[in-house]
């Protein structure tokens, strides 16, 4: 890696640069020209888990495959697909694991039911401790 970037740096510094030369965008690392689409793509990238360095979302990973996923996401969004469609496409390849946003299903319902039950149980306990209507 070190040699690689030394090489690239030398390359970049040595070549007289032709500014204004049209070059293909690399959507693995570059923003989409349409800010609204870019915003959607970024939000999705924050919610997709990198399959190589598994703790991170692909938006914050340096792995090649994460970059390739970012590229595909930007391309699909630019082509007019909705973030939900792109997410579904990735899930169809890698399973629910790849999405940081759990799908609502019977198997994942405790994620919402347990906090809800705590809230209700808490209010029930609370109601026994409160005096209502006896103002002093």
């Amino acid at each position: 890696m070190r040699r690689l970037f030394a090489l690239l740096a030398a390359l970049l510094l040595a070549i007289p640069l032709h500014t204004g030369q049209a070059l293909a965008q690399d959507y693995a690392e570059e923003s989409l020209p349409n800010p609204r689409q870019e915003e959607q793509a970024l939000a999705l990238m924050d919610a997709i888990r990198c399959v190589v360095c598994q703790g991170q979302p692909i938006s914050g990973s340096n792995a090649d495959l994460a970059g390739d996923m970012r590229r595909i996401i930007r391309e699909k969004i630019a082509a007019g697909e909705s973030p939900a469609q792109v997410r579904a496409w990735l899930v169809s390849k890698y399973g629910d694991w790849v999405s940081f946003q759990p799908q609502v299903s019977p198997a994942t319902s405790p994620l919402w039911l347990v906090p809800l039950a705590t809230l209700i149980g808490g209010f029930w306990l609370l109601s026994r401790r409160i005096r209502i209507g006896r103002k002093r």
Binding site: D46, A47, R49, P57, G95, D96, W97, V98, S99, F100, Q101, P102, A107, T108, L111
Partner: peptide, 8 residues
């Protein structure tokens, strides 16, 4: 296997 992250 599921993942739970920032969106949740």
């Amino acid at each position: 296997k599921i993942s739970v992250g920032a969106p949740y």
